[in-house]
Lab assay of single mutants.
Amino acid sequence: AMEMGLACVVCRQMMVASGNQLVECQECHNLYHRDCHKPQVTDKEANDPRLVWYCARCT
């Protein structure tokens, strides 16, 4: 999947907007926009540098 680069696995886009940054699952290393992931990634989750985030598939 490395050839995908830094794109969201849901929408396949790399564009990021304020409040909709890409977050990386620490287990599978897929990237998700906060708005694309279900459930939506919260501000607290996205902005906490100590948080280890896992996508819905890996939790």
Rank of each mutant, 00 (worst) to 15 (best):
A1G: 07
A1K: 15
A1H: 15
A1M: 13
A1S: 14
A1L: 09
M2K: 11
M2V: 09
M2E: 10
E3P: 02
E3Q: 07
E3G: 05
E3C: 05
E3I: 04
E3V: 07
E3S: 10
E3D: 09
M4Y: 05
M4K: 10
M4N: 13
M4F: 07
M4C: 11
M4Q: 09
G5I: 04
G5V: 06
G5T: 10
G5P: 09
L6A: 15
L6M: 15
L6Y: 09
L6H: 14
A7T: 13
A7N: 14
A7Y: 06
A7W: 02
A7M: 09
C8T: 01
C8E: 00
C8W: 00
C8H: 00
C8F: 00
C8Y: 00
V9P: 03
V9Q: 14
V9I: 07
V9L: 04
V9M: 04
V10C: 05
V10Y: 04
V10D: 04
V10W: 02
V10E: 07
C11W: 00
C11N: 01
C11L: 00
C11K: 01
R12Y: 04
R12F: 04
Q13P: 02
Q13F: 02
Q13K: 12
Q13C: 06
Q13Y: 02
Q13W: 01
Q13V: 07
M14F: 09
M14G: 15
M14P: 12
M15S: 15
M15K: 15
M15A: 15
M15G: 15
V16I: 08
V16D: 13
A17S: 12
A17C: 10
A17N: 12
A17V: 08
A17W: 02
S18D: 14
S18P: 15
S18E: 12
S18T: 13
S18Y: 05
S18V: 07
G19P: 09
G19T: 11
G19N: 11
G19M: 04
G19F: 02
N20W: 03
N20H: 11
N20C: 07
N20R: 10
N20D: 12
N20E: 11
Q21T: 15
Q21Y: 07
Q21S: 13
Q21F: 08
Q21D: 11
Q21M: 15
L22H: 12
L22E: 02
L22N: 10
L22D: 03
L22W: 07
V23W: 10
V23D: 03
V23N: 04
V23Q: 07
V23M: 11
E24P: 02
E24D: 07
E24M: 02
E24Y: 02
E24N: 03
E24C: 04
E24W: 02
C25V: 01
C25H: 01
C25P: 00
C25W: 00
C25F: 00
Q26M: 05
Q26F: 09
Q26H: 11
E27D: 10
E27M: 07
E27I: 06
E27F: 06
E27K: 15
E27N: 11
E27V: 05
E27P: 01
C28N: 02
C28D: 02
C28H: 01
C28S: 01
H29L: 03
H29E: 05
H29F: 05
H29R: 09
H29T: 04
H29I: 02
H29S: 07
N30R: 11
N30F: 05
N30L: 12
L31A: 14
L31K: 15
L31Y: 14
L31W: 15
Y32I: 05
Y32N: 02
Y32K: 02
Y32M: 06
Y32E: 02
Y32L: 06
H33I: 00
H33R: 01
H33C: 12
H33E: 02
H33M: 00
H33S: 01
H33D: 02
R34Y: 14
R34D: 03
D35Q: 15
D35C: 10
C36F: 01
C36E: 01
C36Q: 01
C36N: 02
H37N: 06
H37I: 11
H37K: 02
H37F: 04
H37D: 12
K38Y: 06
K38G: 06
K38P: 03
K38E: 12
K38V: 13
K38F: 06
P39R: 03
P39A: 03
P39Y: 03
Q40G: 12
Q40T: 13
Q40H: 09
Q40F: 11
Q40N: 14
V41D: 03
V41I: 15
V41T: 05
V41Y: 02
V41K: 03
V41L: 11
T42Q: 09
T42Y: 05
T42K: 11
T42N: 10
T42E: 09
T42L: 06
T42F: 04
T42A: 11
D43F: 07
D43G: 09
D43L: 07
K44A: 12
K44Y: 02
K44S: 08
E45M: 05
E45S: 09
E45W: 04
E45C: 07
E45A: 08
E45R: 04
A46I: 08
A46K: 14
A46W: 09
A46T: 06
A46G: 11
A46F: 15
N47F: 05
N47E: 12
N47V: 09
N47P: 05
D48N: 06
D48R: 06
D48S: 07
D48Q: 12
D48L: 06
D48E: 09
P49I: 12
P49Y: 03
R50A: 13
R50K: 13
R50V: 05
L51D: 13
L51R: 14
L51H: 14
V52M: 10
V52G: 13
V52Y: 03
W53P: 03
W53F: 10
Y54G: 05
Y54V: 09
Y54H: 15
Y54Q: 13
Y54M: 10
Y54R: 15
Y54A: 07
C55L: 00
C55S: 00
C55E: 01
C55D: 02
C55N: 02
A56M: 11
A56E: 08
A56L: 06
A56Q: 05
R57D: 12
R57P: 11
R57H: 10
R57Q: 10
R57T: 14
C58E: 00
C58V: 00
C58Y: 00
C58Q: 01
C58H: 03
C58I: 00
T59M: 04
T59H: 13
T59G: 06
T59S: 14
T59L: 04
